[in-house]
């Protein structure tokens, strides 16, 4: 279980990205973090594994306060937190297998990682994960030879290879098309419920968040302004998070898109016969 207590971040430029965020994520819960650009979603996620140093506050993962750790202890604790990135952030020139195995770096000594001689159990686990995300036959391809959706699957496998207790997911679908986005979100939520993994997912796409998340947290200017189940995300709630906008029109737009997709699928099915 993750508990944030009074987490704040002020950048050197004087911009306050987060102020006094208090939040608790129980085991197995998937939280969608929504909010306008610059609301601090990305900063919040990066403060948790301290890719960004928080200015003040507590980050309790289990009974460890991540905010107060020294460099080497932090490294040990980072193994417990898997992270999935917006533009996949795979090491492009390494193979898919190396990318997945890089999730084990925190557990193996340098010489093993340097010679690519990982323990047999790590390799077995990596194959198992590649099979789970449906990329078994791509193991020895270079990461930059894969499509966007496939790369994000590798990103998921890398995060899971760590054997994490928490997933931080930063805009997992921002560079993907609508169909692949939904596949990736479905895969993520399935995997989280299989393993009882809690996850915090930054997401721009409100309908997508409502479709897949169990709980929505709305950030505005670094503060939590909404916290509740997706069906409580009313027009008033969206206005508090994003400001005034014609929400019904946006929903209509999304329905139109879904209809268009269904129609296209139908046409493809006809063609395939």
């Amino acid at each position: 279980m993750l508990t944030l207590d009074g987490l704040s971040k002020t950048y050197k430029t004087g911009d306050t990205a987060l102020s006094d965020v208090t939040l608790s994520v129980p085991k197995g819960q998937i939280i969608g973090l929504i909010g306008p650009s610059g609301a601090g979603k990305s900063t919040l996620i990066r403060c948790i594994n301290r890719l960004v140093e928080p200015t003040s506050g507590k980050i309790m993962l289990g009974d460890v306060n991540l905010a107060s750790l020294g460099k080497s202890d932090l490294r040990q604790q980072r193994r417990r937190i898997g992270m999935i990135f917006q533009e996949y952030a795979l090491v492009e020139r390494l193979t898919v297998m190396e990318n997945v195995l890089s999730g084990r770096l925190g557990y193996v000594p340098f010489w093993r990682s340097f010679l690519r001689r990982f323990p047999a159990t790590d390799i077995q686990r990596a194959y198992q994960l590649l099979d789970r995300v449906g990329l078994m036959e791509h193991a020895d391809k270079r990461a930059d030879a894969l499509s966007g959706g496939q790369r994000q699957r590798v990103g998921i496998a890398r995060a899971l290879a760590q054997g994490p207790e928490l997933l931080l997911v930063d805009e997992p679908t921002a560079s993907l098309d609508p169909k692949t986005s939904r596949q990736i979100m479905r895969l993520l939520t399935e995997i989280c419920s299989e393993r009882g993994l809690p996850a915090i997912v930054n997401i721009h796409d409100v309908p997508l968040a409502q479709q897949f998340m169990q709980r929505i947290v709305g950030l505005r200017a670094g503060r939590v302004v909404f916290d509740g189940p997706p069906d409580m995300l009313t027009r008033e709630a969206l206005t508090t998070i994003y400001g005034e906008e014609d929400w019904n029109a946006m929903r209509q737009g999304d329905e139109e898109q879904a209809e268009a997709e269904a129609e296209a699928r139908g046409r493809l099915a006809v063609l395939a016969q």
């Binding site: 890719l51 193994r79 990135f85 492009e92 020139r93 770096l105």
Partner: peptide
């Protein structure tokens, strides 16, 4: 971003160099 991703796994400085930076500068 690639370097950030490798350090987020809990890799040591040398491992980040080996996995995050070296493959990028090889060409």
């Amino acid at each position: 971003k690639q370097i950030e991703a490798v350090s987020a796994t809990g890799a040591t400085g040398l491992q980040v160099l080996n996995y995050g930076i070296v493959p990028q500068i090889m060409p």
